[in-house]
């Protein structure tokens, strides 16, 4: 990945929520790079900060939240570097949809029920200086690409479409202004298996054709395994491991990533021994000292309870893929456990 252009470089981003009991540190000093055409998937339990992180990137955080530190450096098509965290509200409105768009879970909530799909397309286009004729042409083309009956859907109201069709409409509209980045938060959660399959297939086709970068948020490891180039594991507001998808799935180095994999059943593996993670994620107002995962970790030692593990490179980046980074003192023990696991279930 050394040679590929970085589209978005996030450095030291921290986000917190103000609650009655104190400050909830939802995202802590998070850094990562997103390259042109890359799909980066964030995995982790609910409340790990993956959604907050991405809401911060599009600056749509709820009022109680604040961005405490960090940059999100975006490189536009002309090569100009923009810090998204410093954009004015007006500039941010332009940035959304034309440079970066998003698709959320639950397509019905993202569509205005009293507007035809065509009106939504025109509104979005008009706000960014695209005329109606062009917008219609673009939208119909994209609707066909996502395997919709383009003309019928264009003139429909949201309630006339099935959940899967609505989700594909949102995906198409997200690409209307050809953004470089699309953020997707659980886009296939709450849809049926065959619907999920068609959304994933359509997404892969679009990505191959239009070459946008994707930030994908999912609690579903299987979906992440299928579509991501790079996986970032988040725990209690930290990225604890990030690396190429094969590295993270086959050679995980963080105890938490391994525990997540241990808890996920796989269809083609016959009978499997699975394990859940004991306890629940920590209180983010007063997180435990040391590694925040140590209280639930089967590899934890005294050092884990006392010191914060530094993020270290376990495999460098090359032309094809990102570096593999991890913040875990017990990565040797984790690697051994993974080898045993692969041996047993292979």
């Amino acid at each position: 990945m050394k040679n590929r252009d970085v589209v978005l470089s996030v450095r030291g981003l921290s986000v917190s929520y103000l609650a009655r009991r104190g400050r909830v540190r939802a995202v802590n000093n998070v850094s990562f790079d997103l390259h042109a055409g890359e799909t980066l998937a964030f995995i982790g339990e609910s409340g790990c900060g993956k959604s907050t992180l991405n809401l911060a990137l599009i600056r749509t955080l709820p009022k109680a939240a604040s961005i405490d530190a960090g940059q999100a450096l975006y490189t536009d098509r002309s090569g100009t570097l923009i810090d998204v965290m410093k954009l004015s509200d007006r500039a941010m409105k332009q940035f959304l949809w034309s440079e970066c768009s998003m698709v959320f879970q639950g397509a019905l909530n993202s569509l205005n029920p009293v507007l035809r799909i065509s009106e939504m397309v025109y509104d979005t286009a008009a706000a960014h200086g695209m005329d109606r004729k062009m917008a219609q042409k673009e939208a119909l083309g994209l609707f066909e690409k996502v395997r919709l009956d383009a003309h019928r859907v264009f003139n429909s109201y949201p309630h006339e479409l099935s959940g899967g069709m609505r989700q594909r409409v949102l995906l198409a509209v997200a690409l209307l202004l050809r953004p470089q980045i699309v953020i997707m938060d659980e886009p296939t959660t709450a849809v049926d298996i065959l619907t999920q399959r068609s959304i994933l297939d359509v997404l892969k086709e679009l990505r191959a054709e239009l070459n946008f970068s994707t930030i994908f948020i999912s609690h579903d490891l299987a979906v992440a395994a299928e579509i991501a180039d790079t996986i970032a594991t988040m725990y209690a507001g930290d990225i604890v491991e990030i690396g190429p998808v094969e590295e993270v799935f086959y050679r995980p180095k963080h105890a938490y990533t391994l525990s997540l994999l241990d808890a996920a059943p796989r269809l083609s593996f016959g009978h499997e021994e699975l394990d859940s993670i004991p306890g629940s994620p920590p209180d983010l107002i007063a997180p435990p000292p040391g590694c925040k995962f140590h209280e639930r970790c089967r590899f934890a030692t005294e050092r884990c309870a006392a010191q914060v593990p530094p993020t270290e490179i376990v495999a460098p980046a090359d032309d094809q893929q990102q570096a593999h980074l991890v913040a875990c003192f017990e990565r040797t023990a984790v690697a051994q456990a993974q080898r045993r696991r692969m041996g047993v279930n292979a």
Binding site: I193, L194, Q196, R197, L200, D220, L221, A222, V223, A225, E226, V245, E246, F249, Y250, L261, A264, P265, R266, L267, S268
Partner: peptide
């Protein structure tokens, strides 16, 4: 068969 073939799996090689 269609359902089983459509389900993504938590293993990059197998699912791809």
């Amino acid at each position: 068969r269609a359902l089983l073939a459509a389900v993504p799996e938590a293993d990059p090689d197998i699912t791809r």
